[in-house]
Amino acid sequence: MPPLTAKPYLRSVQIDPHADIDPQRYPFTIPAVRDLGVLEPHPDVTFFVGENGAGKSTVLEAIAVALGLPAEGGTKNVYRPQQQEVSPLQHVLKVTKGWRWPRDSYFLRAESLFNVFTYLDELPGGGPSLHLRSHGEAFMDVMLRFRGDGFYLLDEPEAALSPNRQLAALTVIDGLVKQGAQFIIATHSPILLAYPRAKILSFDGTGIAEISYEDTEHYAVTRDFLNHYPRRLEQLLGEDD
């Protein structure tokens, strides 16, 4: 019998209807942000997908900061006075939590992981430096520290992971989900997107819509290329006679 949990820890996210929004100001110029609506995460895993600039990482970051996590990543205990600039979206988000918040939470983003590792190295008694490991190994090491009954936001984790490590990450995610964890993941990886107990939200120029795995561009483009790569290379590289 599966354990009784308080999931979903995060039940919904929306822009406060009473907030004064300037549609000409970033990030509200992004259609998926401006028309966020009521976003209801899956109790287990929610994926944000879309082209670069579609707003998925912007929304993920705003959720993390609105929940008290640092913009550059880490737990609530990570404090760096020189944090990267954050969009104003966090100030107008209305988040609805479940009846109990998890014991553990973490915002993991590939682009600023170096800064977080440097901060951890400067703490007394922090253990071996994560800088002594490869980016992918360090990334996996952080994930292996996650616990069940946790809430985790991951921003493009595949940037640090080989295909084999992405498969390993799926196993880690599944094990944590079965112990009560909830994930929201912004990704371009067709491997990660294949996780079955998930909701996939597509960010594009019309807003946000739930789609199936097979309907994602990531799946379709990857499958087409792998099945027809000689022909696709001829077309892409101008070697078609």
Score class of each variant (00 low, 15 high):
Phe183Trp: 04
Tyr195Arg: 09
Pro196Cys: 06
Ala32Asp: 09
Leu132Tyr: 04
Leu237Phe: 14
His91Ser: 12
Ser212Trp: 03
Pro157His: 03
Arg232Phe: 09
Leu236Glu: 12
Pro3Met: 06
Ser212His: 04
Ile21Asp: 02
Gln14Trp: 08
Ile184Phe: 07
Glu51Ser: 15
Asp204Cys: 07
Asp44His: 15
Tyr79Trp: 11
Phe114Pro: 08
Pro230Gly: 11
Leu93Cys: 10
Lys94Ala: 08
Arg11Lys: 15
Gly50Ser: 06
Gly136Ile: 02
Met1Phe: 14
Leu120Tyr: 12
Glu158Gly: 02
Ala32Thr: 14
Pro196Glu: 07
Gln24Glu: 14
Ala66Cys: 14
Tyr152Phe: 12
Asp22Leu: 13
Arg80Gln: 04
Lys76Asn: 11
Phe146His: 03
Gly68Val: 12
Glu217Ile: 13
Asp215Val: 03
Thr222His: 13
Gln166Leu: 05
Val221Leu: 13
Pro163Met: 09
Phe114Lys: 13
Gly68Ile: 07
Ser12Asp: 00
Asn115His: 13
Ile185Pro: 00
Val33Trp: 04
Phe203Tyr: 02
Leu144Asn: 12
Pro163Gly: 06
Glu158Val: 02
His188Ile: 07
Glu156Cys: 03
Lys7Arg: 15
Ile200Asn: 02
Leu120Met: 14
Ser212Gln: 07
Gln182Tyr: 01
Gly74Met: 02
Asp240Thr: 14
Pro8Glu: 05
Leu10Gln: 00
Pro70Asn: 03
Ile191Ala: 06
Leu130Cys: 05
Arg25Gln: 15
Ala66Gly: 13
Ala220Gly: 10
Glu72Cys: 10
Arg197Phe: 13
Leu67Val: 05
Leu193Cys: 05
Gly98Met: 04
Asp149Leu: 00
Gly74Cys: 05
Ile30Tyr: 08
Ala6Arg: 11
Leu10Asp: 00
Phe151Trp: 00
Asp44Phe: 11
Lys178Trp: 07
Ala220Gln: 14
Phe48Lys: 03
Ser87Leu: 10
Arg103Cys: 09
Leu120Asp: 07
Leu132Asn: 08
Pro102Ile: 01
Lys199Cys: 09
Arg231Thr: 10
Ile211Gly: 01
Tyr219Asn: 05
Ile211Cys: 03
Arg109Glu: 04
Ser112Gly: 04
Ile208Val: 13
Glu61Leu: 15
Gly126Tyr: 11
Gly127Val: 00
Trp101Ile: 04
Leu236Arg: 15
Glu239Met: 12
Val172Phe: 11
Leu130Asp: 00
Asn164Trp: 10
Ala19Asp: 12
Ser87Asp: 03
Lys7Leu: 15
Tyr213Ala: 02
Arg109Ile: 06
Arg103Leu: 12
Leu237Asp: 10
Asp149Thr: 02
Leu161Arg: 08
Phe114Ser: 12
Asp149Glu: 06
Asp155Cys: 01
Tyr9Lys: 02
Gly136His: 00
Glu156Pro: 00
Gly55Lys: 00
Phe151Ile: 02
Val13Lys: 03
Pro43Cys: 07
Arg100Lys: 14
Asp204Met: 05
Asp104Gly: 04
Ala159Met: 12
Asp22Met: 14
Phe151Met: 05
Val92Ser: 09
Tyr213Asn: 02
Leu130Tyr: 04
Ala209Met: 12
Val142Gln: 00
Val177Thr: 01
Ile191Gln: 04
Lys7Pro: 11
Pro23Gly: 14
Thr58Cys: 07
